[in-house]
């Protein structure tokens, strides 16, 4: 248990939180790249997934993009960016990688959420004379919302985890505390950094579960074994 108390000591040392390599600065970097990437991914994937689901087209694309995403290592993608000219573009390589890994869960869940809306309800709405747009806004979107939120949660956790791996290719974020600890054989610092990263990921998950419950129609999104939250690439 010696290491745990030493890690606690590292976290309790004010000097470790300030300055360019300090926790606050690294956390700021982490939240910045994660936030930008999640916003871009949502702007791309949600309209596309919802539209494909509404029209009932492109299912193979929307589902398979998740399976392909699972097979590609985040570390490899980040490394490929870092040996390309993109490495001179500041936070851009990290953000692009984060977007690439956030799109699949968003796209798949938005599509599946729309497709799994009860066909009888859709037919009834059409029978009442609803237009395509009304059907989308008033029937399909509210019913698809739990799965869309599941996708958002899954993407957010994915993004926070991917931003950690960015440290392994020399980019910023909380992972740098871990890699710096490895480089200086400072195990307490490694453990302290890992605790910070784990707490951040669990917080993001918990907050989004809470938001989903507040917005949701009273029932939690079903847990999907074949797609959705269970996609781990980082």
């Amino acid at each position: 248990m010696g290491v745990v108390s030493e890690a606690w000591g590292w976290l309790a040392t004010g000097a470790n939180w300030s300055g360019d390599g300090g926790v606050w600065h690294r956390l700021g970097e982490h939240l910045y790249v994660s936030g930008v990437a999640l916003a871009v991914a949502c702007a791309v994937a949600l309209p596309l997934g919802l539209f494909l689901g509404h029209r009932g087209r492109g299912g193979a694309l929307a589902i398979n993009v998740s399976n392909v995403g699972r097979a590609v290592p985040v570390f490899a993608v980040l490394a490929l960016f870092m040996v390309s000219p993109l490495r001179n573009a500041g936070y851009l390589p990290t953000i692009v990688a984060l977007v690439l890994f956030a799109v699949p869960p968003l796209l798949t869940n938005a599509y599946v959420g729309m497709r799994e809306v009860d066909r009888a309800v859709v037919e009834a709405a059409r029978g009442m004379g609803m237009s395509g747009g009304q059907l989308f806004r008033k029937v399909e979107l509210p019913l698809a919302q739990p799965l869309v939120m599941t996708g958002l949660r899954s993407a957010a956790v994915q993004v926070v985890a991917t931003a950690t791996i960015a440290a392994m290719v020399g980019q910023g974020g909380l992972g740098r505390i871990i890699t710096a600890g490895f480089n200086t054989y400072n195990t307490p610092q490694v453990v302290a950094g890992a605790l910070l990263v784990a707490v951040l990921a669990l917080l993001v998950e918990a907050v989004l579960v809470g938001v989903g419950r507040l917005l949701g129609p009273g029932r939690p999104a079903p847990v999907r074994e074949d797609r959705g939250p269970l996609r781990k690439t980082v």
Binding site: V3, V4, V157, V160, A161, T164, I165, A167, M168, G175, I178, G181, F182, T187, V190, V191, G193, A194, L195, V197, A198, A201, L202, E205, P229, L230, K232, V234
Partner: peptide, 18 residues
């Protein structure tokens, strides 16, 4: 198992280092 799954891999490996 879901909590374990949420922990990013770099953090998981680091927590196991000691």
């Amino acid at each position: 198992t879901t909590v374990l799954y949420t922990v990013p891999s770099l953090a998981m490996f680091s927590l196991l280092l000691p």
